[in-house]
Design a protein around this nucleic acid. Sequence first.
DNA 1: GACAAACACGAGCGGTCGCTCGCATTCTGG
DNA 2: CCAGAATGCGAGCGACCGCTCGTGTTTGTC
Lengths: 218, 218
Amino acid sequence: MPDNEEKEQPRRRQARGERRIAQLLDAAATVFTTTGYTAASTNAIAREAGVSPGTLYQFFPNKEAIAIELGGRLVHEMQTAYGEALAPIDPATPLEEAVGAAVDRFIAFNCQHPVFFALMHGPDIPGRLTEEHDALHVALVGRVEGLLSSILPEAPAADIKRTAQMVLGIYMAGLELILAHEGAERDAYIREVKTALTRYLDPLVGDRLGRSGLTTTP
Amino acid sequence: MPDNEEKEQPRRRQARGERRIAQLLDAAATVFTTTGYTAASTNAIAREAGVSPGTLYQFFPNKEAIAIELGGRLVHEMQTAYGEALAPIDPATPLEEAVGAAVDRFIAFNCQHPVFFALMHGPDIPGRLTEEHDALHVALVGRVEGLLSSILPEAPAADIKRTAQMVLGIYMAGLELILAHEGAERDAYIREVKTALTRYLDPLVGDRLGRSGLTTTP
DNA sequence: GACAAACACGAGCGGTCGCTCGCATTCTGG
DNA sequence: CCAGAATGCGAGCGACCGCTCGTGTTTGTC
């Protein structure tokens, strides 16, 4: 069977259809952000997009598929974002700068796409999306682990893993505070998150670089 | 109308009724923990408690009231718990001990009552319960603020507030990790949370106690 | 212009959920 | 012991939600 071009794609989208899809995803983003996934009704999404429920179901087989598609696009964008944010391991740059740059990237992304936080942190997200979120999470943890173990090659893997998880946890907690504030106060919280992460990590990298760490009772 | 004893209390509970209420609240706790508030159905709670839906509604006017009552009791217990955990400001004890003791208290509470975390962190909690949660949160932040400002009397109130919020945020993030693990790994995460909090706060109190803080470029 | 496919509509189907109501059973006070 | 309150039951009501389907309109192709 050499010429079944795709597994299933008897649908030739027109330009109008692509526009509708984007329209519906935008509407879904706002509805999901305000009410969460479960409480969001497909009729409400269609209404927000200015179309009928039937129209919505011409482009998405069910409610979950909307979240999947939306989440998928966000994850894709996120991957490029954190690829730029965490990829280059530059041992020469001081910790504060590295942390600051990474945090700034992620903050910018989450401020541009508030749905992301809402979709990925609700306890009511559909199964398929949970997998994507978990995959993204372990990818992020893996990246941080890679950075940490390149700086601390002698540390046990389990310790590295815990530290990476804590780093992400601290960042997430800070992100919630950051998104809850605006203007100058938001900037202050951004600085505070960077401070917290730097203080948490400084004793680790400080030891290696021969700086004065917080090692007690030498 | 001088003798309307209470606003509304024509209901004289029997011992059996009190037992049923406790039974229903226990059932609600398990259902809420496993499925969250919105997804939890009153019929499921009644089934879990081994009673009929009608019986449930003899003791609670609606689904929200169940969560309210359950949340109220938890908040009450929580208040005594954090009263013991954060009340005594002992400037002599080292930071690590103080943080460690406080964290241990809260961890113990949350491990005994996993509903608390589920109810207070779902995006779908009913309005009245959100108020209780917010009240508890500002109370906790206030306590931490009090502790911090007693140690750092010269620090601006806004900075103290942000630090207190970050402390709670780091703890909450750690709590999620702690609850997600068991046994030795859980203990390791408990230690990690204490480490993170200590490192975050040490430069602040370290300055005051004349220890070597992380103050850069003096 | 003709024809098919893609697009759009919205009433409504099946199902679930919160909650009610009529009635049976058990407890309590006099 | 008995009247009445408290407790218990469970079928089912009304509302909403995800989703469908028959029908009509627009778009691309020849």
